[in-house]
Amino acid sequence: MIRQATEKDAEQIAPLIEQAIHEIAETLTGTQEKEMILERLAWFVTQTGNRLSHENILVKELDGRVVGIVITYAGFDAARLDEPIKRQLREWTGRDVQIDQETEGDVYYLDTLSVDAAYGGKGIGSELLQAAADEGERCGLRAFTLNADQTNAGAQRLYRRLGFVPVKTLAISGGQFDYMERPYST
């Protein structure tokens, strides 16, 4: 079953976020300590109004367990959704932290897609991706977008096969990413 995430899913969602975004998780949590990263990611999931909030997450649940997630939001909401994260990072670290802008405008942005390794190869990622794409289309946005790490050849092939086209290169938390989009049919 794919459903909207809730605050109660936070402890299961945090490791899936960390697994997918690595260095970006360090940036968003202000630490490199794995236990602290997971704790802080889970905290953001329980909150509202930020990019990692349960409000922006769909989960795939099997046997009462979250086995996959997709985090999405409209591009024009990206800067607003990063502000609570910046404020919290200032509180945790005592300094202002720069968060690289990953998207903007009239698009539906796939921030994070992650499946528990034990459930890989079962089509869960594709199912979550399609559920997210459908949601963006219902919102009436012009395109579905994502960032694909340039060093991840498998993800690059998958997204191109699914109709995503690179439109620019972005630097995010020190890595190089292809910003890719797939227009919605109007």
Rank of each mutant, 00 (worst) to 15 (best):
L41W: 11
N56C: 15
Q176P: 05
I99C: 04
L89Y: 14
E181M: 12
D149I: 14
P84C: 09
D178E: 11
I17C: 00
L162T: 01
L170N: 04
R95H: 11
L81Y: 07
G121Y: 06
Q88I: 07
F76R: 15
T169C: 07
G64S: 13
Q156K: 01
K8G: 06
I37G: 01
Q176Y: 10
I124A: 02
T186N: 08
L38K: 08
I85W: 08
G123A: 09
R87F: 15
K60R: 14
Y73L: 15
G30P: 10
T151E: 00
A10P: 01
A20M: 11
A131N: 04
T6L: 04
E35P: 10
A5P: 03
T27A: 01
R51T: 07
R142E: 15
G121D: 05
M36W: 13
L62W: 12
T186C: 14
L162H: 08
L129V: 06
G120A: 04
L52T: 11
V165T: 07
E83T: 11
T169R: 10
Y184M: 15
I24G: 02
V70H: 02
A171P: 06
D63W: 13
T72A: 02
D63Y: 13
V97W: 00
Y184P: 13
T72F: 07
L52H: 09
G154S: 13
K60F: 14
G175W: 03
G154I: 11
I13P: 01
L89D: 07
G175N: 11
E35S: 11
A153P: 03
R40M: 12
G105Q: 07
Y159A: 05
I13L: 03
I69S: 06
D77Y: 14
I21R: 03
G125N: 08
L113T: 00
L162R: 00
A143V: 11
V59M: 05
T72H: 07
